[in-house]
Design a protein around this nucleic acid. Structure first.
Length: 262
RNA sequence: GUGGUCGUCUG
């Protein structure tokens, strides 16, 4: 409907502006219709509306999230032809693309090249690469990067801690996870719902379902009531440990609370 | 002057 709306705007002589076209591109991307999104880019050019950095960033991010790095890089090059310069957001998306494609070496190269091009990594740059390391279980690299960002006097935020804590659980380093949680508190940061979900999931996956359950019950008193993800995590934890009575009881509770299970 | 793009949780 959005596309038709834009089409009728064009017909009655109301020129959609670049923000309108970009919203349409984003809409197609959110539905994983990158082909159609790309079509909108071509269409706006035809209609005499010049794409801007946002237009390209939206598309490049979408290609990257779908691990279509080659096409992303192609657009990256194409931008220059439109006399547009990639910015930090573009680089962040490309780093994510290489991380998702498990090409960490190249992700690191993009990180370095952005600096060479005169940009300063921001907290999103760091967390993107950090998550890439954590997902691959490369915790030494992750921790080195974490040290580096602190040295560059970036204030670590709860997202960075969440990412690292999850990485620690994934490699079975429960002690490392606890220490990072303590550090998060010490820094005066508030654990959020994802922090708790990561802890509960991490404990379950490491066989500590009763510890997970304890946190599940305590989190509300810390100002973080469980959400539907929390329920899904703890229920799956019980199921993996062959405790279906507890699981089904929690499914009932979940439904009472207005959530629906996966 | 307003509106559009990037990071962490289960599935």
């Amino acid at each position: 409907e959005a596309k038709e709306m834009v089409a009728s705007m064009v017909q009655i002589g109301v020129k959609p502006d670049v923000v309108t076209y970009n919203s349409l591109i984003k809409g197609f991307c959110l539905q994983n219709k990158v082909k159609e999104a790309r079509g909108v880019l071509d269409e706006m050019i035809r209609e005499g509306c010049a794409p801007d950095i946002y237009s390209y960033n939206i598309l490049i991010d979408s290609y990257c999230k779908n691990k279509r790095i080659d096409e992303a890089e192609q657009l990256f090059d194409e931008m220059s032809c439109m006399s547009l310069t990639s910015d930090l957001v573009t680089y962040n998306s490309v780093i994510m693309g290489y991380c998702l494609a498990e090409r960490l070496k190249e992700a690191q190269e993009v990180f370095e090249s952005l600096i060479v091009h005169g940009y300063r990594p921001n907290i999103i740059t760091y967390s993107t690469l950090l998550d890439g390391f954590c997902q691959k279980g490369l915790m030494d690299d992750a921790l080195n990067l974490f040290k580096k960002l602190k040295r560059c006097d970036m204030k670590p935020d709860v997202v960075l801690y969440n990412t690292l804590i999850q990485g620690m659980y994934n490699v079975g380093n429960l002690d490392g996870a606890s220490k990072l949680f303590t550090e998060l508190i010490m820094q005066g940061l508030q654990p959020d719902i994802q922090t708790y979900n990561i802890k509960i999931n991490g404990l379950c996956k490491n066989g500590l379902v009763s510890d997970a359950y304890r946190i599940f019950r305590e989190m509300e008193s810390y100002g973080c009531p469980p959400n539907s993800t929390t329920y899904n995590i703890i229920i799956q934890g019980f199921l993996r440990h062959n405790d279906s009575p507890s699981a089904s009881q929690l499914i009932d509770e979940m439904v009472e609370r207005g959530f629906s299970g996966d």
